[in-house]
């Protein structure tokens, strides 16, 4: 099994660590504290890499596996950072029947990453999302704030080319 450590090196600061430790201290004696701690940790770091999960586990005196199990159970948590350009493909019902699954697959192939991951240069991250309320434009994807609709797999290259910088 491959070690799923993020390809992007961890760049947490002492300031972030201080904030995280304060959050954990605040929940020290609260038995159900892992969820709020993880949510705040993700606010602080933007994602939950192994370094952050280890810190949480050590501070809470629980195995890291316990942290990781919760992180991977909930879609709201990410173990990878987001890219400079966050690509989000809608796999909601309307987009899906209009072929967004193929677009998603093509993006994975083009970028060489799976959903939830980030390219090693930190430029693109890819996620699937559920309905974004633009069913009339199905199939839809977004890159940061830009929305692209009525897509076919042939559009993928053109869209990626726009973010060449």
């Amino acid at each position: 099994m491959a070690f799923k450590k993020s390809a992007i090196p961890f760049s947490g600061t002492a300031e972030q660590e201080k904030r995280l430790k304060a959050v954990i201290a605040e929940h020290k004696n609260d038995p159900g504290a892992l969820m709020p701690i993880l949510q705040k940790a993700q606010d602080i770091y933007g994602y939950l890499p192994i370094e952050v999960q280890q810190m949480i586990a050590d501070e809470m005196d629980i195995p890291m596996e316990k942290v990781y199990g919760v992180v991977t159970f909930y879609a709201q948590f990410s173990i990878n950072p987001k890219g400079k350009y966050k690509i989000s493909v809608c796999l909601g019902t309307a987009c899906y029947v209009k072929g967004s699954g193929d677009i998603y697959d093509k993006l994975q192939e083009k970028l060489g990453i799976k959903g939830g991951e980030i390219t090693s240069d930190g430029k693109f991250s890819l996620d699937a999302c559920r309905c974004i309320g633009a069913c009339g434009l199905a199939p839809v994807l977004t890159v940061n704030e830009d929305v692209y609709g009525r897509l076919t797999t042939d559009d993928v290259d053109k869209i990626l080319a726009k973010y060449a910088d």
């Binding site: 099994m1 890291m64 596996e65």
Partner: peptide, 23 residues
């Protein structure tokens, strides 16, 4: 009191393993 294995992921993808796919 060790806990180096646990249930990871969700639904059909659920699997018993160690964090971050470690061996």
């Amino acid at each position: 009191g060790i806990g180096v294995i646990g249930a990871n992921e969700r639904g059909f993808a659920t699997m018993i393993g160690s964090p971050f796919g470690m061996e």
